[in-house]
Design a protein around this nucleic acid. Sequence first.
DNA 1: CTGCTTGCAAACGCTTTGCATATGA
DNA 2: TCATATGCAAAGCGTTTGCAAGCAG
Lengths: 160, 160
Amino acid sequence: MESRINRIKKQLHSASYKLTPQREATVRVLLEYEEDHLSAEDVYLLVKDKSPDIGLATVYRTLELLTELKVVDKINFGDGVSRYDLRQEGADHFHHHLICIECGSVDEIQEDLLGDVEKKVEHDFNFKVKDHRLTFHGICWRCHDKVENEREEPSASKKK
Amino acid sequence: MESRINRIKKQLHSASYKLTPQREATVRVLLEYEEDHLSAEDVYLLVKDKSPDIGLATVYRTLELLTELKVVDKINFGDGVSRYDLRQEGADHFHHHLICIECGSVDEIQEDLLGDVEKKVEHDFNFKVKDHRLTFHGICWRCHDKVENEREEPSASKKK
DNA sequence: CTGCTTGCAAACGCTTTGCATATGA
DNA sequence: TCATATGCAAAGCGTTTGCAAGCAG
C-alpha cells in the first residue's frame, strides 16, 4: 500500500511534477476507495475531510494529471459526471464494468475478456487497438437473487 | 427510407406522443445523417436549415423522447457532449464503435462481437446482460495506411 | 529564488426547466 | 376543446480558467 503510493509519487516525479501535499492526499483517497467509482466531487469531499484546505479546482487538476499519467482512468457511465478509476498496476488494458439497472451498483471485471474480439477487430477492420471501454448493463447477482427469493416465498416474510 | 420514417412515427403514436413537424424534421435529419454521430447542437443546426423555426430545447426534448423509445442511443465518447446514434431496426444490441486516436474518426461495427463474452459474464458473474457498450480506441485503417505510405516513400513527395 | 501549484471566484459549455403561447388530435 | 408541445430565456450543474499568492525543489 505504502509502496504503491511511493511508486505513484515516483511517476509524478519523473514526469517532473511536484509532490505537493494536496496531490498526495488525493492519491491516498483514490487508493483507499479503490473499489468505488468516485466523481471529482466525491474525491474532493473525501480529501477535504483529512486536509480541509484543498480546493475543488486542485482536485480536478490532480485528477487530470493522474489520468494523463495513466494512474487512473476517467470513465463516464452516462450520468453527467466523470468518474475516476485507479488502474491495476501493470494492467495494459482497461477493466470492464457491470452496471446494474436495478440498483445502480457498479462491479468490475479485471480479467481481460476481449483478447479474441480485439484480434478479430484488428484483422477484419484493420484497426490497431490501443485501448477499449466495455460496459455491460443488466441485472447484478444481488438483485437477481432478490427476485428469486421473492418468487420462492411470495407471501412469507416480505422484507420491507 | 420513407417507410422507416413511418414506422418511427407509428412508434411515437402508439406511445401517445404527437406527431409534430419539429419531431418529424428531427427524425429526418437523424436518418439522413445516420452515418455520423451528431450532437444535439449538430442536429439542431441541421434541422434549423430546413425548418428555421425550431428551438434547441425542442431538439433536446425530441432526442430524449427518441432515446426513451429506443429509436436512438445516447452515447458519450468522453468529450463533454452527448451524441445520438440511430439504432438499426430490429437490433437488440447496441453496435460497437472504433474511435481513432489520430484523426478522431468514429466507425461502427454492426456485427455483434460479444456473444461469447456475454455468455461468460452471465455464467461467471451471475449477471443478466441486457445491453452493452463497447468502444475501441486505436488507429483506424486510414491513418494506418498513411503511416505506411510515409514509410515507403520517406523523402519523396512529402505532403504538408 | 523561480516556476510550478494552489485557492478562489468567475467563466464556460452543455443541458434542463419555467412559463406563456401555440397546436395536434 | 384542451392536454401536449413549443420557443425563449433563464437557471442548473459539472468542469475549466484567470489571477494573485504560496510553496516545493
